[in-house]
């Protein structure tokens, strides 16, 4: 196979480069899984240690806000997946539009999350700031874990939105020739969907169980 412009130095052809890029991203995802996994483990042990406190705390979360946000993230994932399809088909315009939709839905998630944080702040559920904590001490530990896990997730989402925005801009300015660079779009998608999957587990773990 002849080398096209999109094949970088150590690789002999596009298929090899695609395999290496995908493998590298999944390795990164695996390391991310360890980071979030430890927090989920903390939540599981907390729940086993004090099921009553966990139930009280869970009932104070805004279940419907979390549910709407789950739907928002699922929709953003669909938009991201369609952006990858458009990139593979070598169509920069739809790719840009789907990427912008992805970023907009990601922003919508963050706005709703910020509104939810505000409600919790006003109820005194945020540790360390705002009104005094209204519930028992063991329940407060749940909210520490809640803010750490959702905060870490929001930070990942913020990075994702910035990356999607950058790709949208580069695609719109034709700086990212498609379909030659569709592999990069796939990599961006894998990261975005991973952040979605983390939320898919955070939502039932924190709000529903």
């Amino acid at each position: 196979m002849s080398r096209s412009g999109a094949v970088a130095e150590p690789f002999t052809d596009e298929a090899q480069q695609h395999e290496a890029a995908t493998l590298g991203l999944w390795l990164f995802i695996a390391s991310e899984l360890m980071l979030f996994g430890a927090i989920f483990l903390g939540l599981a042990v907390y729940r086993l240690a004090d099921p009553a406190a966990a139930t009280i705390a869970s009932d104070h979360l805004h279940l419907w806000l979390g549910g709407v946000n789950t739907a928002v993230l699922l929709t953003s994932s669909l938009a991201m997946a369609l952006a990858v399809l458009a990139a593979r088909a070598g169509r920069p315009r739809p790719t840009t539009l789907w990427l912008l939709a992805t970023a907009a839905l990601g922003l919508m998630f963050l706005v709703l999350k910020a509104y939810e944080y505000r409600l919790e702040y006003l109820e005194g559920l945020m540790p360390g700031v705002g009104p005094p904590f209204p519930l028992d001490r063991p329940v407060e530990l749940f909210f520490n874990l809640y803010f750490v896990s959702t905060g870490l997730h929001a930070a990942h989402l913020t990075l994702g939105i910035a990356a999607v925005g950058l790709f949208a801009w580069r695609t719109a300015r034709r700086r990212l020739p498609l379909p030659e660079h569709a592999t990069r779009m796939e990599g961006l998608g894998i990261y975005w969907h991973f952040v979605d999957v983390v939320w898919l587990f955070l939502y039932p773990t924190l709000y529903l169980i």
């Binding site: 796939e186 969907h193 979605d196 999957v197 898919l200 587990f201």
Partner: peptide, 14 residues
Amino acid sequence: AAAKAFLIMWFFMH
């Protein structure tokens, strides 16, 4: 949640 995650990993994450 695991079913949703599998669908997303299998299809969206290629």
